[in-house]
Design a protein around this nucleic acid. Structure first.
Length: 492
RNA sequence: UCCUCCUUAGCUCAGUUGGUUAGAGCAUCUGACUGUUAAUCAGAGGGUCUCCCGUUCAAGUCGGGAAGGGGGAGCCA
């Protein structure tokens, strides 16, 4: 037994390192340790600020004068990767409690200081976006992506703890009838015009890889409903794709979506689930990534100082998150929202670009922002929208005019959740599909849910990147996904 | 896709009514110093002013077009 342990121990020699986060949180001193990481700065030919991505806090490595040769010291440039062994001691300087007094320094990877684009100074987010393959090495993106990880983990923990089944819905789909947006085509046909054609000149997809026209998914909802009709409680969490020519701070062509679907839930259950879910994952991030969120909050505060007084946020990032976790979301119907907007001074003084005149129109983002940021100053759940501005699968209300839909609007980013109670009555559903010219034959499999043991059910979709934006305070959605895809951009 | 603003050194930005050799801070390099905290001090190198066309004796500066980027809108998550 002992021998086995010894072998295992030696086999992992190279990785017998201490993470910097652990080393710094353990305040004891006077022990030997090995660390590996990347040089942030090298000051005074003696002090290396070393970072390994476990935290934004750097470990101060001391290379005492005269103990290391000049060629080695020359290679301690910003960005270089090194392995250091030495003694952890109580720091002789003031900026940190402990530091590592190096006895050996090994250069694992050089970094040419004249060519390495990251410097020990502030960079603009636009510049870092151009070098997205290197931006993980900065404090801001270190924090953003550690928070993103925590939120993703919390998503699974929340649903798993509630007994939901995590369902993997297909990324390549055949249905293009959902109307959720423009789709990316998936084909193995050549693009030089030689693809097989039908007599009328259209492409003959019968000869394509799947024997039919296929696309990248825009939503896993319809497939999710199939599984909810058997498991009762399911959720999906995966990539979705929209080929819309959207150039905004809150749209991506490739983004991750969370879509729970729950049998026997009505609209109110659905709202309760969504609200509980959002609060849970935010709380999880606060509890597990306090340092990162505080760093991002400070970054945001400095950014805010550049803005004129009236455009600044009243709350800090941490206050905003605490507020969301500890307060109920405001719930009101579309009809009530229209009344509030119509009677608002903003509307009467004609400050809206699109004035609210009556019932039935879709809300513009200026209206959503007014409700969330000016009127209620908290997240808002809007329900029971006019049927004409919503999807075919949403459940018709008794009034025959509205559907059991709900949108959750968050301060700063707008719509974060879109959901509904689904239309479980086959006759009503097919009627709506006819009205909206949705080809029922193509969705026969979907309609089977209503033919064989249909039941009331509800679900929602939550844009994961918008959630990450909300929690990190990042203004542009392109900065909360590692490798953003958007019109004219698919680098890395 | 529409509206709007921007593009000058590796980065962040100045650049006057069009006028000689286009500047600063940071970064980089060289040297000094050595318990520093985005170290400090001294010096040096670094520019096809995004590209194309035009107006002019003369364009970084004015006009037109293109490309790229930011912000806003629409579509939505």
């Amino acid at each position: 037994m002992l021998a086995i342990f010894a072998v295992l121990k030696f086999r992992h020699m190279f990785n017998k390192r201490v993470r910097i986060k652990e080393l710094l949180s353990n305040e004891s001193a006077n022990y030997q340790a090995t660390v590996m990481g990347w040089v942030r700065t090298f000051r005074n030919s003696q002090f290396i600020a070393l970072n390994d991505g476990s935290t934004n806090n750097n470990l101060q490595v001391v290379a005492s004068l005269g103990e290391f040769d000049e060629p080695t010291l020359k290679r301690l440039t910003t960005g270089a990767c090194i392995k250091v062994t030495g003694e952890v001691i109580t720091s002789l300087g003031k900026g940190q409690k402990v530091e590592l007094k190096a006895s050996s320094i090994e250069i694992l990877g050089d970094s040419d200081a004249e060519k390495f684009p990251l410097q020990p100074k502030k960079h603009s987010l636009e510049f870092l976006r151009e070098i997205a393959h290197l931006r993980f090495k900065t404090n801001t993106f270190g924090s953003v992506f550690r928070v993103r990880h925590s939120l993703a983990f919390a998503v699974h923990k929340f649903f798993n703890d509630k007994g939901f089944v995590y369902l993997h819905t297909p990324i390549i789909t055949a249905s293009d009838a959902e109307g959720a947006g423009e789709m990316f085509k998936v084909t193995t046909f050549p693009l030089d015009g030689t693809a097989p054609k039908n007599e009328d000149g259209s492409i003959n997809f019968k000869e394509d890889f799947f024997g039919r026209s296929t696309n990248l998914t825009v939503s896993g909802q319809l497939e999710g409903e199939l599984a909810a009709m058997a498991f009762s409680d399911i959720y999906t969490f995966g990539p979705t794709f929209r080929a819309e020519n959207s150039n905004t701070t809150r749209h991506l062509a490739e983004f991750w979506m969370i879509e729970p679907e729950v049998a026997f839930n009505d609209l109110e259950d659905n709202m309760n689930l969504a609200e509980e879910f959002i609060k849970y994952v935010i709380k999880y991030a606060i509890d597990h990534n306090k340092e990162d969120i505080e760093f991002l909050a400070q970054r945001l505060e400095e950014e805010e100082k550049q803005k004129p007084q009236n455009e600044r946020n009243e709350m800090t990032l941490m206050e905003k998150l605490d507020f969301v976790v500890n307060n109920n979301f405001e719930r009101l119907t579309y009809t009530e929202a229209i009344e509030i907007l119509k009677e608002s001074n903003h509307n009467k003084k004609k400050k809206f670009q699109y004035l609210i005149e009556g019932w039935g129109a879709d809300l513009q983002s200026e209206h959503e922002r007014y409700l969330v940021e000016k009127h209620f100053k908290k997240p808002v759940i809007l329900t029971n929208y006019p049927k004409d501005i919503k999807s075919f699968y949403m459940r018709m209300n008794e009034d025959g005019k509205t559907v059991a839909a709900m949108d959750i609007l968050a301060p700063g980013i707008g719509e974060i959740v879109g959901g509904s109670q689904r239309e479980e009555r086959l006759d009503r559903l097919t009627e709506r599909m006819n009205e909206m010219k949705i080809p029922a034959e193509e969705l026969n499999w979907y309609l089977d849910t209503r033919r064989f043991g249909s039941c009331p059910h509800a679900g929602f979709g939550l844009g994961f990147e918008r959630l990450v934006q909300f929690v990190t305070g990042m203004g542009n959605i392109r900065d909360v996904i590692p490798f953003p895809r958007y019109p004219k951009s698919a680098e890395f």
